[in-house]
Design a protein around this nucleic acid. Structure first.
Length: 562
RNA sequence: GCGCCCGUAGCUCAAUUGGAUAGAGCAGUGGCCUUCUAAGCCGCAGGUUACAGGUUCGAGCCCUGUCGGGCGUACCA
């Protein structure tokens, strides 16, 4: 009532301190100011108009005008019962689902994937998963680099291989070597360089034999990416790949549209869009170049074409770009031009979701000792190797196959979790020791918490399904704290989706796992007397389900034992 | 030069966008395994949130300035 009168949001959040109850409403003070009334008085009026008897045990006014709410155990227990009986864990499907495009990963198919692709791939996938789970229609778009001059060179090198009687397909298996050798030849052999350049012209001209070899190369390269995605537990499929070349035919139309809209200016022979809000050196106008002097197009043009496609054909309500922060200006320009040109209306939101760079322990850019880029495949090998060492040390008696499975889940999970648990925008220091640490906000800690729950069920030979009707008791503070956190999944996911901030989910899961550990220490489960035993088993099962679901949305596996 | 981002405990990072006494992990220090996985749990100690002003009931968060770092700034992506 008050909120609607003053247009002030209620701002209900978990309390900053347990002594204030479970949730606090922070909006009263601001509302009172706007309405020029006393905040505590206003809080009193709100309370009088509010009926929280269904969910609250206690509601009180505190401090300058906070409203503190203590949930009733009954309300919490009811919620938990619903969650336990629901594979969505009582998280509602969006009432107004959106068509959301998430543009992420986007490797260059001319080369092997390297660590530079890791953050976009992991963060974008987590965001896509969460949005999808909340009921939105998600279009994962892998805007791969599958076009450009380097492909002329690669095709020329394929030809050279075949001429030498070698099987080009086998050679392609190591994309990095293939690229390096092609580049070397391009730089040293004038004949080769000429045929490479001719190939570019042929490709653009639609030469069928050239296109066939180009597709053959792409097929190999895409298989390599799929291998990485599969190993990483990333949901991207080949059908999500819609590379730059997919927009080739649209590029002239994009430029024509810009011209028709009166936005196009020729400058130094290039076709540009100048918008007054963008300036460069010495306040000189800064163009968005959409066509080079030689007639070629740039990634701004492709991005504009992609926006057009996503709005027209995918009916996007929201388009999310997960790229490094260095591209902020590019996207600002592209978004502004897309709106001016009418490619996208006000109903569609365009969001650049930036992230910082990966640094090594010394705070330098993450590179190999020789200064080259680190191959993603090799990074993942090392992750699993290091995880395997830890598993072997902690749990030498497990069967080898189990150890391997744990090493995979823990190693890959550690790399992903470390990335996802940081605030995206800051650069982050990559540290094997920290991400594989068994304490703190890490994947192994989460996975361990899960394995401990599962162990209880194994030991008790219990089936969670049999517990459905059993009442949940929250008498112990550790039980209640755990229940409260379990009930917080939905609001957490909503925030992650709204802000594109996976680290809110990891922080939530860490709090949940910590609460569980506490519960685990203080509340015996299997040895508890009958009604309590079932109640605690239900809390255990719910904890496991939430951890599993949360990690699954982050693309991280759980294991039954570790 | 201009623009964007960042600066929080010795170290690595949080802080749900303006809420109450700034939180974790590591490192330091003291406890807890005859009972469900100790890869765990519970204490203690550690802070002028780079600095200086400002806005207001309230600022790590907003505004102005300064210092320090990163990135970007016309035909790469």
């Amino acid at each position: 009532m008050t909120a609607s009168q003053t247009h002030s949001p209620a701002i209900v959040l978990p309390t900053s301190d347990a002594k204030f109850g479970d949730y606090q409403a922070n909006g009263i003070m601001a509302a009172a100011k706007r309405a020029k009334t006393n905040p505590r008085e206003l809080a009193g009026n709100v309370l009088a108009a509010l009926d929280l008897t269904d969910l609250a045990e206690k509601v009180e006014i505190a401090g300058p005008g906070f409203i503190n709410v203590t949930l009733s155990d009954r309300f919490l227990a009811d919620h938990l019962s619903r969650a336990a009986d629901d594979d969505r864990l009582d998280v509602a499907v969006a009432a107004d689902p959106q068509n959301v495009v998430v543009d992420y990963s986007g490797p260059n198919l001319a080369k092997e994937m390297h660590v530079g692709h890791l953050r976009s791939t992991i963060i974008g996938d987590a965001i896509a998963n969460v949005l999808e789970f909340l009921g939105n229609r998600v279009f994962r778009q892998n805007h791969v680099g599958d076009w450009g001059t380097q492909f002329g060179m690669l095709i020329a090198y394929m030809d050279r291989q075949v001429d030498c009687g070698q099987d080009a397909t086998a050679e392609l298996a190591d994309l990095e070597v293939f690229y390096r050798q092609a580049k070397q030849l391009f730089d040293s052999d004038a004949d080769f360089a000429r045929s490479a350049r001719e190939n570019v012209v042929k490709l653009q001209g639609g030469d069928e034999s050239c296109l066939r070899r180009w597709r053959q190369f792409l097929d190999q390269s895409m298989s390599h990416c799929e291998g990485i995605y599969h190993r990483l537990g990333v949901s991207l499929q080949r059908s999500d790949m819609r590379g730059e070349s997919a927009y080739n035919d649209d590029l002239p139309a994009v430029v024509a549209d810009l011209k028709a809209a009166g936005l196009l200016t020729e400058s130094d022979g290039a076709q540009c869009v100048f918008l007054p809000e963008f300036t460069g050196h010495n306040d000189s106008p800064l163009p968005l170049i959409v066509q080079k002097t030689d007639g070629g197009y740039l990634y701004a043009t492709t991005d504009l074409a992609a926006i057009r496609y996503r709005v027209r054909h995918l009916k996007a309500d929201r388009i999310i770009y997960t790229t490094d922060a260095g591209q902020a200006l590019h996207f600002k320009q592209v978004f502004a031009v897309a709106r001016k040109a009418g490619f996208v209306g006000n109903a569609t939101s365009l969001e650049h979701v930036p992230f910082g760079v990966m640094l090594d322990a010394e705070g330098r850019r993450f590179r190999t000792r020789q200064g080259g880029t680190v191959k993603l495949m090799e990074l993942l090998d090392e992750a699993e190797r290091r995880a395997a060492d830890v598993v072997a040390e902690k749990n030498p008696d497990l069967p080898d196959q189990t150890k391997r499975r744990i090493a995979h889940a823990v190693g890959i999970g550690a790399v992903k979790y470390a990335d996802l648990s940081m605030d995206r925008i800051s650069d982050y220091k990559f540290s094997w020791d920290k991400m594989l640490a068994l304490q703190g906000n890490t994947a192994p800690y989460m996975q361990y918490a899960y394995a401990r729950v599962r162990s209880i069920f194994r030991k008790g030979a219990e089936d969670a399904g049999q517990l459905l009707g059993e009442p949940i008791s929250l008498a112990d503070p550790a039980e209640r704290e755990l229940a409260k956190l379990i009930a917080r999944l939905e609001e957490t996911l909503a925030t992650v989706a709204a802000e594109c901030r996976p680290n809110f989910l990891t922080a939530y899961l860490f709090a949940l796992a910590t609460a569980f550990s506490n519960f685990y220490e203080t509340c015996p489960v299997l040895n508890a007397p009958p009604p309590l035993r079932a109640s605690r088993l239900r809390l255990c099962d719910l904890t496991a389900c939430v951890i599993k679901k949360g990690l699954e949305l982050l693309g991280i596996e759980v294991v039954e034992k570790m």
